[in-house]
Design a protein around this nucleic acid. Sequence first.
DNA 1: TAATCCGATTGCATTTTACAACTGGTTGCA
DNA 2: TGCAACCAGTTGTAAAATGCAATCGGATTA
Lengths: 171, 171
Amino acid sequence: MDIERRSGCPINLSMEVVGDRWSLVVIRDMMFGNRRHFRDLLTRSHEGIASNILASRLKRLKALGLITRMDDPSHAQKAIYSLAEPAIALVPVLAMLGAWGRRFLPVTEELSIRAQLLEEGGPALWEDFMRDLRVLHIEDPIGGANGTRKSPVLARLTQAYLDVRARKAGG
Amino acid sequence: MDIERRSGCPINLSMEVVGDRWSLVVIRDMMFGNRRHFRDLLTRSHEGIASNILASRLKRLKALGLITRMDDPSHAQKAIYSLAEPAIALVPVLAMLGAWGRRFLPVTEELSIRAQLLEEGGPALWEDFMRDLRVLHIEDPIGGANGTRKSPVLARLTQAYLDVRARKAGG
DNA sequence: TAATCCGATTGCATTTTACAACTGGTTGCA
DNA sequence: TGCAACCAGTTGTAAAATGCAATCGGATTA
């Protein structure tokens, strides 16, 4: 699997790689939701991705070197999907894209609190987050997937999301 | 014309708006190439966009409020396309996306020099550029389109591109 | 041992994309 | 005044992508 290379422009090539409806959404779920199994990505998707689309995206992202796939030693049928360095390096892109969406599109509060924190944290926070992601996805993908390994940054983002959700449900 | 709103997540909504093969490429050409007419966008496209796709993208981006369209007073058949504020606000996204593409994808030197300058310039340069774009596309779209109005930042980026191209052709 | 869970695949209808040819009209130049 | 070049698109058609629901064979769990 390869991209078309219609031109050598970085923006064009980037769009050839992630310029579709689902690739960045799948990467987002792996990155911010720490969803590392097929079923997890499928059933906990807020947007309701179809299973054949998810399968084709995972295969494609793997072929392009953005993610990796390994057998889960705790379960003969499970596979662990992990972010590779190119996908981890998308953190600043996703941060800016989230900031843009938050400003111009009809986002909901609970689903944009993480984007807000990431925007306010700036490049320093992005670097911290990327360091954490390298541990969870590259150094120790198994521990990262099963929750043995934790990311302080991810924990903060997740807690903020849960807080907003609880407040909106309770108040 | 409207987006689906499968979820209120800023990244999802952003991908519903610009998550396709061509939208950001068209915006890139308007922004960095100052291409403001249909024929200009069509025939000077490095990637060879098809005319029906270009027409449908322009219509869609206009409906979504990212660009505007006006008659060109100097020519009864020409239309001037201009970036609206939401598209101008994509500068940081395009800068980060270009930086990512430059790092991980097979870009060419001449087509990535502008991305390099934009990356090195950082947020300060992006702000300058966005200010310029507001003049060329919102305050004075006609002068911006016909070259009466100039952008210092765009002039620098364009000159750097022409220099690299000349060097590669001549040396 | 029966129900559930696992990562997918299959079949099929709809939508989008791609490419080439073409349209009705305008403009600039000889 | 006539004609070539240019203008913003549209049309026709084939190929590919998407979306959805049902399903697969095997593994795990209660």
